[in-house]
């Protein structure tokens, strides 16, 4: 297995820069999830690691060896594509064994590797079939099988679950995680689905507009988002943002919102009087309550029945607030962005 270092990597198409100075160290055996909205550069970064896109400047190293100029076949990595990219004219067995056949591995070794993989992924009985005779979930497994049979230095996943239905996605998520625990392989997983990111990652790399916004464990990203983008992108329903100005009051500070409401702010050494602030509040940190200090007047505008607890969408003057509780609306915890 391998550690991967990305140093000051950039990618441009002509005059259009799509990745700017990416620095990232991935430890041996780590499961890293690159997450961000469409067009943020996460797939491009993955393809640069795979060798399918050239690195414009900077370097990518695997086990401290710079691989910028190595063709994909010499990088000893495996990749699972969003479309699965199974070879339609080959059987499942031929698909799985193709990389080993190209490397001229002995037939017995190939047979035993294919057998091992099909046992792990439950592909026995499907080996003679062509990809078109498989369901989406089965194709996904074959794509996984093709990757793990080679025992590569690192696994790259490019939104591998986005073509599956919700139930299957959930199932495959946990299977991939279990597989990672078993194989202890360095893995880089690209997704725009924050649930996949939160549930699978050892560390999440949040990306936006070609920049890394934050790198951290799922809970760090959720509880201490580095900026408004990360705060808004991670979490469903999304975090509420309230704009206003910090005002000194007694021992502490409160937020004077643009709609002239006052919210007591948590203690912080960074706060200064008259400072412009955006207050971020997770839905689960709001409660509906009687009017009083540290409250915002709000009207329940829409109720989305969405498992338990029910999510309330509330509207306060011009500020849209989302709450996960049905019995109050007070701020229990807030993030501030200056």
């Amino acid at each position: 297995m391998a550690s991967i270092q990305i140093t000051e990597a950039t990618k441009s198409y002509g005059n259009t820069a799509v990745l700017h100075g990416i620095d990232l160290n991935i430890q041996d055996g780590e499961f890293i999830v690159l997450v961000g909205p469409s067009g943020c550069g996460k797939s491009t970064l993955l393809r640069m690691i795979a060798g399918l896109e050239e690195v414009t400047s900077g370097s990518i190293s695997i086990n401290e060896r710079i691989i910028n100029d190595l063709p994909p076949r010499d990088r000893d990595i495996a990749m699972v594509f969003q479309s699965y990219a199974l070879y339609p004219h080959m059987s499942v067995e031929e698909n799985i064994s193709y990389a080993m056949t190209l490397r001229k591995s002995p037939k017995e070794k190939i047979a035993s590797a294919v057998n091992g993989v099909s046992n792990i992924l439950g592909l026995n009985g499907l080996l003679e079939r062509r990809p078109k005779a498989l369901s989406g979930g089965q194709r996904q497994r074959v794509a996984m099988g093709r990757a793990i049979v080679r025992d590569p230095q690192a696994f790259l996943f490019d939104e591998p679950l986005s073509n599956l239905d919700a139930r299957l996605r959930e199932q495959m998520r946990s299977e991939i995680r279990k597989l990672h625990r078993k194989l202890k392989a360095t893995s880089i997983y690209v997704t725009h689905d924050q649930i996949e990111a939160m549930t699978m990652a050892d560390r999440i790399v949040a990306m936006h507009d070609g920049y890394i916004q934050q790198v951290g464990t799922p809970l760090e990203i959720y509880d201490k988002p580095a900026n408004v983008f990360v705060a808004s992108f991670i979490g469903s329903p999304a975090m509420n943002f309230i704009k206003g100005t910090a005002r000194a009051s007694g021992d502490g500070y409160h937020l004077q919102t643009d709609e002239n409401h006052q919210i007591i702010l948590p203690e912080s050494a960074d706060l200064k009087d008259q400072m412009d602030l955006i207050l971020g509040v997770r839905p689960e940190h709001l409660m509906i309550t009687e009017e009083g200090p540290a409250t915002l007047p709000a009207t329940v505008d829409l109720i989305e029945p969405w498992a338990f607890p029910r999510w309330f969408m509330c509207v306060s003057v011009r500020t849209a607030l989302k709450s996960s509780h049905s019995n109050g609306l007070i701020l229990q915890k807030a993030h501030k962005f200056m």
Binding site: A50, G51, L52, P71, R75, M79, F81, S83, A99, L102
Partner: peptide
């Protein structure tokens, strides 16, 4: 023919020309 197929073949160990001929 999706580009993914030859990219998968290149990662599996083919050259681009090899991917073209075999896949």
């Amino acid at each position: 023919i999706p580009k993914d197929l030859e990219e998968a073949a290149m990662i599996d160990g083919n050259t681009r020309f090899g991917a073209l001929v075999k896949i």
